Amino acid sequence: MNKGFLFAAGAVLAAITAPAHAADDYQHWIVRLRAIRVTPTERTGAILPSFPTAHTGVTNSYAPEVDFTYMATKHVGAELILGTTEHDINGRGALDSLGKAGHTWVLPPTLTLQYHFLPDGHVRPYVGAGINYTIFYSEKASGALQDAIGKTKLGLSDSVGYALQAGVDIDISRRVFVNLDLKYLDIDTKARLTTGSLVNRERVHLDPLVPGIGIGMRF
């Protein structure tokens, strides 16, 4: 696994395992369940060497997301974000007539270190920054693509990148609240299309915006 990811994960874990004081009078654990939309702001390169005037686009996706936050102090917390989404990959440029060229599932576990501005308020804004390790799985080339160029295997490389976050918790009761959240994830991958002995490659910068709305509880 990437050393930068391990270093960042260690820093976040150090923050969440810092000893708590006996006089603490706040809830240390927060759990949220959100409905999210993953909206790639992708930039894609040419598919080389066979299709220099073609590239791809990636569709939006909706999914549930769960996160767990440990508040080391009233203001500072660490959040682990978990969710997975499915995306279609569409042909663009010279491959536009294909429509769907493939699909993939994406799993981007993300760790952020957060600062909460008004921990005792009924409206509690926060910002965060951290790291995501993105895993692509169940990739598959579409039938339309394989009809056009032959039996093809699609693969996408995993990615390590940064994450930025901003949001707000709005109380319903002392423990239960509504959450609004927005994340930006730096996700870069290399697509590999293997057709017999021919290998085509494409660089893909997904970099999605991830707005979400949900409900949470403090423990």
Rank of each mutant, 00 (worst) to 15 (best):
I47C: 04
W29P: 00
H55P: 00
H55T: 12
A9G: 08
S61C: 03
P40T: 12
I47S: 04
L48E: 10
W29V: 13
T56Q: 04
T56E: 08
G45S: 14
H28P: 02
P49G: 08
R37S: 13
G45F: 10
A18K: 02
A20Y: 06
D24P: 00
D25T: 12
A23L: 07
V12P: 00
F51L: 06
P52W: 11
A14S: 13
W29E: 04
G45M: 12
V38T: 09
F51I: 08
T59E: 13
A54H: 01
H28C: 01
Q27N: 15
V31E: 02
G45T: 14
A46K: 12
G57N: 11
A14E: 05
V31T: 12
L48A: 11
P49M: 07
I30R: 15
S50E: 09
G10Y: 11
F51P: 05
T56W: 01
L13H: 07
T41P: 01
A46Y: 04
S50Y: 08
Q27D: 14
A35C: 10
Q27F: 06
A8W: 12
N60M: 02
A14G: 14
H55C: 00
I36M: 01
A23P: 00
T56H: 08
H21P: 04
V38R: 03
L33E: 09
H55L: 01
I30K: 12
T41Q: 15
V12E: 06
A14T: 14
T44L: 07
A54I: 01
G45R: 10
T39V: 09
R34S: 10
I30F: 00
R37G: 12
D24A: 13
T39E: 08
I30G: 00
H28S: 05
V38G: 02
H55K: 06
A23Y: 08
S61F: 00
G10A: 13
V58W: 08
P40V: 11
P40G: 10
T59S: 15
P49D: 03
V38E: 01
T17F: 02
T59V: 10
A15H: 04
D24I: 01
I36G: 01
A20W: 05
R37Y: 03
T41N: 15
A14H: 08
R32S: 04
H28K: 14
D25I: 03
H55D: 12
A46L: 09
W29Q: 08
V31Q: 08
Y26W: 10
Q27Y: 07
